[in-house]
Each structure stands twice: as C-alpha cells, then as structure tokens.
Design a protein around this nucleic acid. Sequence first.
DNA 1: CGGAATATTATGTCTAGACATAATTTTCGG
DNA 2: CCGAAAATTATGTCTAGACATAATATTCCG
Lengths: 245, 245
Amino acid sequence: MAGAPNLHQRIREEIEARILSGEWPPGTRIPVEHELVAQYGCSRMTVSKALSALVASGLILRRRRAGSVVAAPTQPRAVLEIPDFAQEAARAGVSYRFEILHRAVERLGPAGARRIALPADHEMLSVATVHIYDSVPVAHERRLINLAAVPAVLNEAFDRIPPGSWLLDRVPWSGAEHAIRAINADAEQARRLAIAPGAACLLVERRTWQAGNFITEARTLYPGDRQYLVGRFSPPEGHHDPRSR
Amino acid sequence: MAGAPNLHQRIREEIEARILSGEWPPGTRIPVEHELVAQYGCSRMTVSKALSALVASGLILRRRRAGSVVAAPTQPRAVLEIPDFAQEAARAGVSYRFEILHRAVERLGPAGARRIALPADHEMLSVATVHIYDSVPVAHERRLINLAAVPAVLNEAFDRIPPGSWLLDRVPWSGAEHAIRAINADAEQARRLAIAPGAACLLVERRTWQAGNFITEARTLYPGDRQYLVGRFSPPEGHHDPRSR
DNA sequence: CGGAATATTATGTCTAGACATAATTTTCGG
DNA sequence: CCGAAAATTATGTCTAGACATAATATTCCG
C-alpha cells in the first residue's frame, strides 16, 4: 500500500527533530526498532530504512545488540562550492571572458612534485588563465594537467572554453584535495587582477585524481576584498536552510 | 543469506566503478532494476537499496518509467573542517591555551544586524579571544552570542573552556552559514597574532541558528601563511581517499 | 493526421516474514 | 568469586511478494 506515503521519511524527520531540538542529547538511546514498529504501525523494514538514513547523515549510531544512540555532534564543517566561472557569470547576469596568459609543456619540478605527491619529471601542460567578469578580473589561475592521463589536451587550443571547464566536461575524477590560504599578491598577480600589490588574496588549490592517477592541479587566486566563497552547512548531511528548523 | 553479505553494497560499488571510470558517462541509462535482479540473482528490494544509495550520493537520477540514468557531475565542492582548537592542538601534540581579550554585553549595531540578518538592538555578549599553540598565536576570534537564546552564558567566565567549545558542547544548532575572505591584518590584529601589519589573513565567518533563532557568530582570523584549512572531497558523497579508486 | 484515451513500464513504497551476527547478560562450573 | 559457556537481544541483510504512481507508448477516434 504505497507509492507516496513516505512513512520512512516521516519517521526520520520526527527523530531528527527530537535530536536537533536537544530533546534527545548525544548518547540518548533511541527506541529500539520493534518499539518504533509498534508506535508507527509499520514493518521493521520501514523503520530500518529511516534509521539507515539517519546513520548515513551522521545523526545516530547503530550497534548490534547495544541499540541505536544519538551521535555526538560532528566537528562543524562548511561546504565550499567551487563554481564554474562561465556558469557563475551567467547566473549573476554579467558577461564572461577569459585570457590565456601562458601555455607550455613542462616537466614537473620539485616544488610541484611535493605538492602533488608524485615523482618529479612527469610531463605536464602548464596553463595560466585570467577570468574576467564585465571587464573586471575576478580570478587568476595557474593549472597543471597531467599529459600522461589526458593526452588529448594537447589538441585543445582553449580558444572557446577555459581549461577548468574543458576538463570538468571531459575527464571524470574520483578524488580531490583542496587547500585554502591567504597570501599577499605579488607585483605580477596584482597587475593581472588589477589590485594593489600586497593586497590580501584567497588562494584555493585543488588537485584531482582518477583511479589513482593524478589529473590536474589548479591554483586559483581570488582578490580577497570580495566575499567569493560562501558555504552553508547543516548538521551533518541534511539539506535544511539555515534559519529554519 | 543475510547478516553480512552486503550484496547491495557490492552492487552499489560495481555501478559506482563503472560511472567513475567513465564507462558509463552522464546520461547513460542504468540497467533497469529487474535486469539487475536477474544479473545478481537477488530480490528487487536489494537492488533498490543499492540504487537509493547511489541517488543519495548524487551519482544517479531515478525517474519513474524513464528508468535510472547517470547524473551529470555536480559542481566541485570542498569540505572545510572547522576544528575545535583544543582538540586540534591535542592531536598535533602541542600545548593549547587561550586568552579572553574583551568581554561585554552589547546591543547589536547596524553592521552586525546586516551580517546576521536580524533586527538591530538585540542584546549580545561580545567576546574576543586569541588562541595559542605552544605560545604561538594561531587565531584571533571575535564572537557574538545571542543572550535571548543562550542566557546561561552570562554565568560562564570562560576561564577554562573557550567560548566556541563551550557553545558547541551545550547549545545544539541546526543551521549554519559561512563566509570566507582574505584580508590584510590591521595594526591591532597583527599585534594579537604576532605577524606583520598588512600580512594576508584568512577570515572565516560562521553564523549558527537553532530552530530559526540566531545563536552565535564567530569571526575567526587565521594568519594566512600557514595552510590551516584543508578540505578533501570525493564526488558527491563517497568517503574514498583521494588517490585511490 | 492530430489529439485524446488507454495500456504499459519502471520506479516508489511497503509488508511479514526469514536467517545471520555481534554484543551483552545470564548461567553455570570450578 | 571468577571466568567460561550459553542464552538473549537488537540490529543487518535479505526475500517474494503487493499495490501506487508517474511518465512514456500505443491505440483509437474524429
């Protein structure tokens, strides 16, 4: 008798509410499945589905025989979106263009090898790009692309699509690593971004892998006076709006 | 036929592998459930569980009658951990202490009201803290705590536990909002963090709500020359290591 | 031929059982 | 009283069905 009732979702939400409201603090034992079965008048499978979802979202822990307990709050986290420049500009209603400042095949040096945790001497395509919204430069990007993993990149001129979008469309990735830092812009960077030398900038490093093979590294510099990166997060995995619930 | 076999997980992993390897690019139709049932010799419930997990992780989309298809890659994201200073120091094997630089009850001014999206004039406890690892200041934090939501904070001296940890332990939160920026340290901030005036710093703003009520805002300033914030992320929700798979 | 009614299909949710397994409790023997 | 063996319990996984629903195919009729 189903198709829409979504009873398991209702169970999930009611337990979730009690946890988030503080009624059930961390460590509280959740009613055992067979009690919930009696309470909701459904089968154990339905209850189990609700509890599984709560486990997946990190709100509860289930242990055989010991029962289910409310999990300790996880360390706060923010989700940092790394937008595609063209898409972001389109949504904001501004024009977008980019310029390729540099393009060369290089061998990976010792500094890069350390960052990427890869033996040096791998052949990389090195590309420097500046991204421009309505004639205002918004980001400066230096990118390394592993030629062994993406040989086709040699045939791409990047005259219509910037390297980041080109890779995102073509090359699947299964793992990524990010680092975020603040740096003072040097003379070259300041000129490219049309800001004062020494101005604080956000540097986002992003490295991606596919099946254990290094694909690409992007080091993107954003002027720091604009609040480019905003993340929202609700405990642990739910998709609630902030300011609700 | 149960208890450990985890067949649904195996099905999930095999489909996942085909998607991540590029064998099934976005838009590819996944074999319909009854084909998977035949292929794995299990019930439809088991297959459905595997596919539900793939939906939850954003790898596939399921539409009635239309079948399941591989989802378009989501926008890259990084997960930014916001560590508890004491815990982080303990893990790193360094000593931790903090100093309260300022503490006062204030009414929310217009600038704060704009950031928090709350009417001004709310009573807030304002606290400024500096966090120190092995006598090196690692962060400067200015915090506002909503007295209407957390009146008990008036009785807390913060002589043993810093305000952030105190709140995390006591007050549940259900929504948060973050902003990340780079700024040049002013004279006061530079002095507190023992860095050069004008040095680039990372400013992380974090605002939390509970049941629609504003709880607290923390504006934490990190010296930018150290790479404090590292996020890792795998598409969309898996917990794979980078450099594997 | 075009639009409306109908049939088909794949997923969505659910039930009422089953056996498996891990961890705790209880029992029992020394 | 203590430690080992056995019973108990709660979750973990699974099955073979069921009806519901949304979207697409097909048929039918004017």
